[in-house]
Design a protein around this nucleic acid. Sequence first.
DNA 1: CAATCACGTTGACGTGGATCAAACGCAGAC
DNA 2: GTCTGCGTTTGATCCACGTCAACGTGATTG
Lengths: 247, 247
Amino acid sequence: MPPQLASAKVTLDVIKTACSNCNLRELCLPLGLNDLELEKLDEMVSARKRMKRGDHLYHAGQSFDSIYAIRSGFFKTDVLIEDGRDQVTGFQMTGELLGLDGISNETHSCNAVALEDSEVCVIPFSHLEDLSREIYSLQHHFHKVMSREIVRDHGVMMLLGTMRAEERLATFLLNLSQRFTARGFSPAEFNLRMTREEIGSYLGLKLETVSRAFSRFHEEGLIAVQQRHIRILNTPGLKKLMTHQRS
Amino acid sequence: MPPQLASAKVTLDVIKTACSNCNLRELCLPLGLNDLELEKLDEMVSARKRMKRGDHLYHAGQSFDSIYAIRSGFFKTDVLIEDGRDQVTGFQMTGELLGLDGISNETHSCNAVALEDSEVCVIPFSHLEDLSREIYSLQHHFHKVMSREIVRDHGVMMLLGTMRAEERLATFLLNLSQRFTARGFSPAEFNLRMTREEIGSYLGLKLETVSRAFSRFHEEGLIAVQQRHIRILNTPGLKKLMTHQRS
DNA sequence: CAATCACGTTGACGTGGATCAAACGCAGAC
DNA sequence: GTCTGCGTTTGATCCACGTCAACGTGATTG
């Protein structure tokens, strides 16, 4: 039993933010750490923060000092430019990290908004750096997480640069499905947490185009869609669509 | 004078790859390190590698063990998908790092190709991790570099998702100009290292569209363009175009 | 100094998705 | 219950860019 459980008062506090008994260990930062290292990580997570749907976790321009691990819930990140245009840069779910964009110049470069009631673990970045100088596997895992984000972004650039509307939406749905699966949910049935407009913004499309593509998939028997409830009926069909050679 | 200069034989070897006398210190990894730390960094850079135009620094799928700092020259990175489509994900110049995409799963996820004769410093990633556990400022700077890459990618996503052709090209030209300036070259006059097709791929446009946009800018007196030679005549004009509200 | 070749320009035309507009569905307010 | 408002669907039309095709240009080679 970890030493910090000796004191009842501390216990409550620690359990509240402990990575060591969090069921997201395999998705989140603690991946690959041993018990001793996990205990150190527990100390690093300074707090949890509950958020309601619509709340901002941080705003673009706000000064950066922590990254956040999503304990429960669903987020979007978006960037704004002066003339009013904006773009959703990603949707984040349980176990994923938010705030990596802020490291580069101590200022967040995008907004993070909860799309449903959520809870995040607050990880002061300087603590993370301190600890990752001590714990090799934490350091390495963190580097992998940042690199994975870069690779993911390249995938989105590919999608935005070369795919047509239906290919984009198929890719998006399959990606969601795969991430839900990794979290123990159904691969085939889920509720979207975002509006058509947000999907469109992420995929570089207008909401009407997203809606039409959904309807088209429905007609073709690829999915059942009713408002935000999605059931994938023909995964291979969607996959085929995803990498369809252009006419 | 650093101790390793005591031996003539070693000297040659060390000078050949020394960060401490590299004029890119302020652009590259060594940023912010003191002399002592620089010496350690010198040992980390295992070799330099000369490359000819068209050579691949690495291929997608190839196993990852080093990142690369561009000592001189110009590169592109691109991703391929099965059906033959590809997309240029970035153009890299002097002082910038290549290979960060490979960290996530020990495998490169894109190709890196020299667009002119180039030279890179080979940095074995495990050495970098070792050293950044020792040197706080190296660790922090490396994190900033990775984060900056993520922010840059978000900018490209914004460009691909919301901008029209001429806005994209104006943004691209101003970005190049700014990066050339940071390297002591003219902000207004430079030679493109890439083809219209590569520009188009990066910007999510066809080469004809790129060519037409160049011609349009020329007609409007914003730039002078002859093949790959570019002279920017009206920077504010381009900036205005870049953030132009859609009709 | 032709011949070749890769790259770039320009024109004519087609189309995927944007835009504009109307109606619908569902949830929360009262 | 009705009202109100946001999100969604669907249709009609438009236009920016893609596609196809021809030609220009500048570097390389025998």
